[in-house]
Amino acid sequence: MYTQALNTAESDDRALEDAAKAAQFQARIDAEERIEPNDWMPAAYRKTLTRQISQHAHSEIVGMLPEGNWITRAPTLRRKAALLAKVQDECGHGLYLYAAAETLGASREELVDAMLAGKAKYSSIFNYPTLTWADIGTIGWLVDGAAIMNQIPLCRCSYGPYARAMIRVCKEESFHQRQGYEIMLTLCRGSDEQKAMAQDALNRWWWPVLMMFGPPDAASQHSDTSTRWKIKRFSNDELRQKFVDATVPQAQYLGLSIPDPGMIQDADGHWRYSQIDWTEFKQVLAGNGPCNRDRMAARRKAHEDGAWVREAAAAYAAKRGQRQSAQAAE
C-alpha cells in the first residue's frame, strides 16, 4: 500500500463556491467530523481527493509488478506463498481505493483509463527494477515501511471512505513489512553472497525510498490546503525524518550500512540524511525512470488483453437479464 505526495498545480475554483457553505464545511473539518460521499464539499476538495486516492490506487496496482516479477522465482514454497499473498493484498488495496475514489463521482474505468493514458501518476518507487531476491526483502522492509508512515495518518483523514479504506489496508498490511524484514534478516544471517545481495539491494533502494515521501516541504505547492482539509496531517519532511529515524536502527541490527556516508545523528537523536537528488525524482516522475515504460506497457497489455473477457461478462449479463425478464413476462 503506497501513497505519495505528488502535488501538482490545480486551478483555484474555490472562489466559485458558496462562501457560507465553504465556511461550514471547514468548521466540520476543524471539529474532526468525517465528510461522507453525499455531503456538500468544495469542488477543490473533491478534486484533490479524487486525484490523491486514485494515484494511491494506481500505485497499488502498478506496485504489483516489481514484486510480481519474483513470484515465479521465489526461493522456497513458503516465500512463494507469502509473496503471492502480499502482491494479492496490494491488488485488494488498489481495489478498495478505487472504490473510495468512486464515491467522489469518478468511475473506476475513467480513473484507470486516465492512468493508462499517462494522465495520472503513481508512486515513483515502482519505476525501479527488482533485480535480485533481496529486492523483495528490501521492498517489504523499506517501501512498505515508508508506506505505513504515510498511511497511518490517513486512517484519520477527513474523508470517511478514504479513512475507512486505509484502516482496512493498514490492518491487512501489518504482515508486509515483517515479511520483508524477515527476508533481509535471513539474508544477513546467511552466506557472504547473501549479505552482499542484501547490501546491494539497500544501496539501490535507499534513496528512491526517501523520495517516496514527496518533494521537500519548501518546494511542496499544495500541502497547505491538504493540511487545512485534514487530508494530510504531517508534512513530507516530517514523515521522511520519522521513517529515517525508525529505519537506521533496523539496518544496524541487520548489519547493513545505509548508503549515505554523510549521515549523522544529531543531539536530539535524529538521523540527518544528506541531500536527496531531486533531479532524479523529477526525471522518474516525468516518465524517465528505469521501468516507467515497462510498467505502463504491462498495465496496458493486461487491460487490452482483458477487454474481450470484460465484454463477454457484460454480454452474458445482458442476455441473462433479457431471459429473466422474458420469463417474468410469461
Binding site: 485488494g92 481495489l95 472504490a99 468512486e102 482496512r168 470484460r310 449479463a317
Partner: peptide, 23 residues
Amino acid sequence: VGSLHASDTTMALQAARDIYTRR
C-alpha cells in the same frame, strides 16, 4: 465492508468472497 465491480450477481458474490473474506 466495501465495494467491488462485477458483471452480475453470481460474479459479484464470488468476487466478494475472494476480496473480502481472505482472512
